[in-house]
């Protein structure tokens, strides 16, 4: 079935960018600088407070109109919309996990005279990331589902081709959409498996062996 590569590439790219945004925004929200904190909070609340589909259309129509720039292509528009949206959600996971690491860990690191950056890199983040893994897995499955929206801005993904076949031959609709669903489920299976694995890793707290 065609459209496969669009769905996959959009998923991979938006996953990578969303993790990036999540870490940047999550760290900014616990920054000591109030301006950085508040600006990031606005980003997070705006993207969490509105629908992804609205954000997608907004970026698709409004950005070129408002600034006279093209985001390059529909592919980029889709990736950026999904990444910004889920980056906002996951930044809360990043922030929550960092704050959940016990104060004693920071104190022990200070007692060993580590700098702020060393404390974050060597002590806090390695533990926080373990806590984040299951939630990141869940959000990645959500992102896979969200990639179906790019067909609405004219991307020729798997759903787009499904729609084409359906509109040319309506009686085939059941089998076409069922196959599309199966296709998404097959993509989701490894993600589900990884998420469960991540859950067991994070429950142990420490990956021994």
């Amino acid at each position: 079935m065609r459209g496969f590569n669009i769905t996959i590439t959009v998923l991979i790219a938006s996953a990578i960018f969303s993790y990036l945004f999540a870490f940047i925004a999550g760290l900014c929200r616990i920054s000591e600088n109030p301006i950085i904190r508040h600006v990031t909070a606005v980003y997070v609340e705006v993207f969490r407070g509105t629908s992804l589909i609205v954000q997608l259309f907004w970026l698709y129509y409004a950005i070129p109109m408002l600034f006279g720039i093209q985001l390059g292509s529909n592919w980029w528009t889709g990736v950026i919309a999904i990444a910004l949206n889920y980056g906002a959600y996951m930044s809360e996971v990043v922030r929550g996990s960092i704050l959940a690491i016990s104060k004693g860990q920071t104190e022990a690191a200070i007692a060993l005279n580590m700098s702020k950056f060393q404390r974050m890199r060597l002590i806090i983040l390695p533990q926080a990331v373990r806590m984040m893994l299951p939630e990141f897995g869940n959000y990645t499955i959500q992102m896979l589902k969200a990639t179906s929206l790019v067909s609405l801005i004219g991307m020729t993904d798997i759903l787009y081709y499904g729609d084409i076949i359906r509109s040319s031959n309506l009686s085939q609709a059941p089998i076409v959409y069922f196959l599309v669903l199966i296709f998404y489920f097959l993509l989701a299976l490894p993600l589900i498996w990884l998420t469960r694995k991540a859950e067991s890793i994070s429950k142990k707290g420490v990956a021994s062996g």
């Binding site: 499955i141 896979l144 589902k145 990639t147 179906s148 309506l170 669903l181 998404y184 989701a188 993600l191």
Partner: peptide, 13 residues
């Protein structure tokens, strides 16, 4: 784990 959009299309079309 499958998109609600596709499920919507399935039910409607």
């Amino acid at each position: 784990s499958t998109p609600p959009l596709v499920q919507l299309f399935f039910i409607y079309y």
